[in-house]
């Protein structure tokens, strides 16, 4: 046996070692999974115990206030947002501190990100205008994505402090997280949606001037005495305005819903089976964060592109 091993090629030895390691890892993962199954809520229920390893998740849509500085209430989502901003700022500042023609690793990462975003913007709006649209669109993307991704760090569920609340006439101790994914706070998607809305309208007016406003308000036919057509026009303009405003709602709740659902999914998955089980969901949330960021930025981009296109027909 020893001789056989001695005569084997190094590659074969490595591959055998790799196989063994893989096997070991699989067994360890399986053991962890089983341990999670036993210690989690599911196991507890089967074993007739009161609670699993983790306390019951407490789902609250409104983000919790964790700091109050002179009447300014700071929510855990804001802290998380600052953390994300800090990470992003550190990344870009370190990467572009002294840029080289032949980029280093960090610089390459940031360059790839910015170039990718630029290409994304270019694909919709064309090369000529892409550079003036890149800052806002890119920032929306990075804002959403980094806020979603940073919340997947294990410190998020770990940093909690207990707080007793009265719920249903019953004193209850819940764990309030110190950090919470910013996307799960309605204000963050709403703020972004408002920024996006203002941005779209700003570009529309800037590019088309008053002709842009003519989309929402067309008194032309009414003034010329064509009453019926005039009212139809007014109605259509109103419709445009409504759909523009409803966009804020749909932007807000799309992001809010996705982020919150992801958060709850992770929470519940870890609660039911503490180990290993939630890992695929973390991967999923990574993807969801990316996709939502892409959608938010893409929608803003597309609607801006529509807004700056001169519209034909009645003015």
């Amino acid at each position: 046996m020893a001789e056989a091993r001695g005569t084997a090629t190094p590659a074969a030895a490595v591959s055998r070692r790799g196989t063994r390691l893989l096997l070991f890892a699989a067994v360890a993962l399986l053991a962890l999974f089983l341990a999670g199954l036993v210690t989690g809520a599911i196991g507890a229920a089967f074993l007739g115990k009161d609670a699993g390893l983790l306390p019951r998740p407490h789902v609250q849509l409104a983000a919790e206030e964790v700091l109050n500085i002179g009447g300014l209430s700071l929510r855990n989502t804001v802290l998380s947002n600052w953390l994300a901003m800090l990470a992003l700022a550190l990344l870009v500042i370190l990467a572009t501190r002294n840029m080289k023609l032949v980029p280093g690793r960090l610089q390459s990462v940031v360059e790839i990100i910015v170039e990718g975003l630029l290409q994304f913007v270019e694909s919709v709006i064309g090369q000529a205008k892409a550079r003036s649209f890149l800052p806002i669109i890119g920032t929306i993307f990075l804002f959403v994505a980094f806020n979603a991704w940073i919340a997947l760090l294990p410190i998020y569920p770990a940093l909690v402090f207990p707080e007793s609340v009265v719920e249903g006439g019953q004193q209850e101790v819940i764990n309030v997280p110190l950090l919470r994914s910013a996307g799960t706070d309605l204000n963050m998607p709403l703020a972004l949606a408002l920024v996006s809305f203002v941005y779209v309208e700003f570009w529309g007016i800037r590019t088309l001037g008053f002709a842009y406003l003519g989309k929402f308000f067309r008194p032309g036919n009414l003034l010329r005495g064509r009453v019926f057509q005039g009212f139809i026009d007014l109605f259509v303009g109103l419709l445009e305005l409504i759909s523009e405003l409803i966009r804020i709602v749909s932007f807000t709740f799309r992001l809010f819903g996705n982020m919150t659902a992801g958060e709850i999914l992770l929470l519940v998955a870890s609660f039911l089976v503490p180990f290993v089980f939630a890992v695929p969901f973390y991967g999923l949330e990574l993807l969801v964060g990316f996709v939502q960021a892409l959608i938010f930025a893409g929608l803003t981009l597309v609607f801006t592109a529509v807004a700056i296109t001169p519209h034909e027909g009645e003015h």
Binding site: V92, I93, G138, N187, M188, L190, L192
Partner: peptide, 30 residues
């Protein structure tokens, strides 16, 4: 649902700050 005007304003300001940081340190140099 969690609407809170100060937080909304904080997020907006944060966004603008991030925009500024990214503009100076990412978009422009890159």
């Amino acid at each position: 649902l969690g609407f809170h005007l100060p937080t909304l304003i904080i997020f907006m300001v944060n966004f603008l700050v991030l925009l500024g940081i990214l503009y100076v340190f990412a978009y422009k140099p890159v």
